[in-house]
Design a protein around this nucleic acid. Structure first.
Length: 324
DNA sequence: AACTTATTCAACCGCACGCAG
DNA sequence: TCTGCGTGCGGTTGAATAAGT
């Protein structure tokens, strides 16, 4: 989109050299990355793997700060990135997750393999927000931070639109930490209220906004048709959870793994089974966002098995959109 | 064709957190 | 306990591009 700026060098960082504290300016580039810089960083990462970003910036011969290198890698150079427009499934998932997580783009991105938080954030701010606004709704996506902490009562819509007032949920067992990495036990602790199988509590066709008492829209529509065009059709009943609710992360730990066949986990929510090729792929590897090690050798973005993904993410709430 | 406005998205900035010394 | 460093996150900016007039 943008053309690289090659002369955008700024005096950003002062360094003290060894000669009695004389100041030496380190020239760090800012602005768009040139293809040459991309190549340098890519080559370095492929050869040496991820490490200290400031070291990477230095050792790769880049006049960039480590932070910039990290961002460039995560948002652009990472080989497991999925390019192109968001699919309707992804759109639904983003909206859905945003209704739960608010602006926690990194957590949302962790559930959308191949997508970055920045990408999702941009997509949300530029596209979805606008569509929702155009749909005549102004209250669809309040953040968890906006929730009314006094409201312990959960409202859930049921089938034909009736309302069920849930008894106060014991939310104490839910991982409230904003970091998703250690929330894998939430389902069991919580009695797994987010398990779509608990249909006596929740209707699968509706989103429950856990952020506050705001109406959410019905996702019963087929994904393919009029993705967001139907968002004007709002469900008036919602579920509200107080506090900051963290959805169990798909990526959980940093155990070294690979794409070998038959990887299984005691905690099945941490892995994606790819039934087509008889492989189980650790979600962390797919996502790549939180992991410190990139080993994406064989994984091809764009070939994600959505059904496999969603079917095995038992802890992911309300994955209720219809797959084609 | 020229100009204006809207949209997109890469990148920066500041802050918070964790960890080591 | 304090401090500095590295990292990650979310908000924001601004240039490039598209669309409209």
């Amino acid at each position: 989109m943008r053309k690289p700026e090659h002369n955008n060098v700024m005096m950003v960082k002062d360094k003290v050299n060894n000669n009695g504290g004389a100041i030496m300016k380190a020239k760090l580039r800012k602005g768009l990355w040139s293809p040459e810089e991309d190549e340098k960083l890519m080559n370095y990462m492929v050869t040496n793997g991820q490490g200290c970003w400031s070291d990477i910036a230095r050792n790769a011969g880049l006049q960039r700060c480590g932070k910039s290198c990290r961002l460039r890698w995560i948002n652009y150079l990472r080989p497991d990135l999925k390019r192109g427009a968001f699919s309707p499934q992804e759109e639904h998932l983003i909206i859905h997750l945003h209704s739960i997580l608010g602006n926690r783009w990194s957590q949302i991105a962790a559930r959308l393999p191949g997508r970055t938080d920045n990408e999702i954030k941009n997509f949300w701010n530029s596209t979805i927000k606008k569509r929702l606004k155009n749909a005549g709704n102004t209250t669809t996506s309040s953040s968890p931070n906006n929730s009314d902490s006094s409201d312990h009562q959960l409202k859930a819509s049921v089938g034909g639109g009736g309302t069920v007032f849930m008894q106060e949920y014991e939310v104490g067992g839910v991982c409230m930490d904003s970091s998703s990495s250690s929330c894998s036990s939430m389902a069991t602790q919580f009695g797994n209220p987010f398990n779509p199988n608990h249909q006596h509590h929740f209707n699968n066709n509706n989103i429950f906004d856990v952020n506050g008492v705001v109406p959410m829209f019905n996702l019963q529509h087929e994904v393919g048709g009029g993705v967001l065009g139907d968002y004007g059709e709002m469900e008036p009943y919602v579920m509200a959870l107080e506090n900051d609710l963290s959805v169990p992360g798909l990526e959980v730990n940093n155990t070294t793994s690979n794409f070998d066949n038959n990887i299984t986990s005691v905690n099945d929510s941490h892995y994606i089974n790819n039934n087509d090729n008889n492989q189980s792929i650790k979600v962390e590897e797919l996502v790549g966002a939180a992991g410190n090690h990139w080993q994406g050798e064989t994984f091809k973005m764009g070939e994600l098995d959505w059904e496999g993904l969603l079917a095995n993410v038992s802890s992911l709430p309300y994955l209720d959109f219809h797959l084609e």
